[in-house]
C-alpha cells in the first residue's frame, strides 16, 4: 500500500542504529535477505503475479480454456464486454453497492462506534455481537439469509406478518426492484462490524483530554463531535472509505449464492458477471478480459485515492 513510515510505529529512530550499520551490506546480510525472501516470493509470484499477467495475455484470445491458444482476438473481448448490456448494468450495480456502502454502511458503523466506543456500560457485549458475522463464511451467511428471505414461510415474512396483520408476503430476492437492496442488506449485516471496529480503534487513539478541554471551553456535544472528534478520526475515515470501495467492487460469493445475479440480472455485479459469462460458459478468454477490467478499475481507484487522499496517513495497519 505504501512505504511511508507510520507516525504510530515511529518507535524505531529513522537514523540507522549501530547494529544495523555494522551488519549492513555484508555478504552475510545479503544471504539472509535472499534466504528470507525466496519462499514467500516464490509462492507469491507463481500464484498471484503470474496469473494476473497471464490473464492480461489470455484476454486477447478467443479461448474456451481447453484447446490451444491460436485464436487471436485483439481487443475483441473487451469490446464485447463493454458493448454487452448485462455487463453495463453489472458495472452500474457494483457502483450502486459501492455508493450504498459509503452512504449507509459507514455512517452506521461510525455512529455505533461513537455510541459503543467510549464509556457505555455493556459496550464489550454489543461490540462482540456486531462484529460476529465477520467470521461467518459467506456460504453460511448466504444460506441463512436465503431462509430469512424465503418467499413461503421465510423468517422475514413470518415476522412482518405477525407485526402487521395486513402484510402480504414478499419474494425478497425474486423481485427485480428490491433484490439488490435485499442483497445489500446482507452485505451490511456481515461487514459493518469490521468498519465499526476500525472506528473504535481510531476513537481510542484520540486523546480524550482534548475533547474535555473543548467542553470546558463551552462547546456542546455536537460541536465537540464536529470540530474535534471527526477531524481527529479523519485518517481512520479515509482508510475505511478505501477498504469499503475495494470491498464493494469485489463483492462476489455472497451475491452469487443468494441470487446467482438474478432475477433477470438485477443483482449482477462485475464479479458475478465474470463467473457467469467467463467460467460457466467456458469462455476463459472473455472471462480473463472481464477480470482485467475489474483489476484496472481497482488499480486506478487505489492509486488515485492514495495519491489524492491518503498520502499523509499511516499505512502500517490493515
Amino acid at each position: 500500500m505504501g512505504s511511508r513510515s507510520t507516525p504510530r510505529f515511529r518507535f524505531i529512530p529513522r537514523e540507522r542504529s549501530d547494529a544495523l550499520e555494522r551488519s549492513r551490506g555484508g555478504s552475510d546480510q545479503i544471504l539472509t535477505v535472499g534466504l528470507f525472501i525466496i519462499p514467500g516470493a516464490l509462492v507469491y509470484t507463481l500464484f498471484l503475479i503470474i496469473p494476473i499477467i497471464q490473464a492480461a495475455y489470455y484476454s486477447l484470445y478467443d479461448w474456451n480454456g481447453l484447446g490451444p491458444l491460436n485464436n487471436f482476438y485483439g481487443f475483441g473481448n473487451y469490446e464485447r464486454a463493454f458493448g454487452h448490456e448485462v455487463f453495463q448494468s453489472s458495472v452500474l450495480n457494483s457502483l450502486v453497492i459501492t455508493s450504498l456502502s459509503l452512504l449507509i454502511q459507514l455512517p452506521l458503523a461510525m455512529s455505533l462506534a461513537l455510541m459503543v466506543g467510549r464509556k457505555l456500560p455493556g459496550r464489550a457485549i454489543f461490540r462482540s455481537i456486531f462484529f460476529m458475522p465477520y467470521v461467518f463464511s459467506e456460504i453460511i451467511t448466504a444460506i441463512i439469509w436465503t431462509f430469512v428471505y424465503y418467499p413461503g414461510g421465510g423468517m422475514l415474512n413470518t415476522v412482518l406478518g405477525s407485526i402487521f396483520p395486513s402484510y402480504v408476503p414478499q419474494g425478497w430476492l425474486a423481485n427485480r426492484d428490491i433484490a439488490l437492496l435485499a442483497v445489500f442488506f446482507v452485505i451490511t449485516w456481515k461487514y459493518f462490524g469490521l468498519h465499526m471496529i476500525l472506528y473504535m480503534a481510531g476513537l481510542q487513539s484520540i486523546n480524550g483530554e482534548i475533547e474535555e478541554a473543548a467542553r470546558i471551553d463551552g462547546a456542546n456535544e455536537l460541536q465537540v463531535l464536529r470540530y474535534i472528534t471527526l477531524p481527529m478520526l479523519a485518517p481512520t475515515i479515509r482508510l475505511t472509505v478505501y477498504l469499503s470501495v475495494l470491498g464493494s467492487l469485489n463483492q462476489f460469493v455472497l451475491i452469487w449464492i443468494l441470487t446467482t445475479g438474478g432475477p433477470a440480472n438485477a443483482t449482477q455485479v462485475m464479479a458475478t458477471y465474470m463467473y457467469r459469462f467467463g467460467i460457466k460458459s467456458f469462455n476463459l478468454g472473455f472471462g480473463s478480459a472481464v477480470a482485467v477490467i475489474i483489476f484496472v478499475i481497482s488499480l486506478i481507484f487505489s492509486i488515485g485515492y492514495q495519491r489524492a487522499v491518503m498520502r499523509r496517513d499511516y499505512t502500517g495497519a490493515v
Binding site: L48, P51, A271, M274, G278, A291, I294, F295
Partner: peptide, 11 residues
C-alpha cells in the same frame, strides 16, 4: 475472490 479465474488457469 476476484482473481480465482486466472489462478485456476495457473493451478
Amino acid at each position: 475472490t476476484i482473481a480465482f479465474l486466472p489462478v485456476f488457469i495457473q493451478v
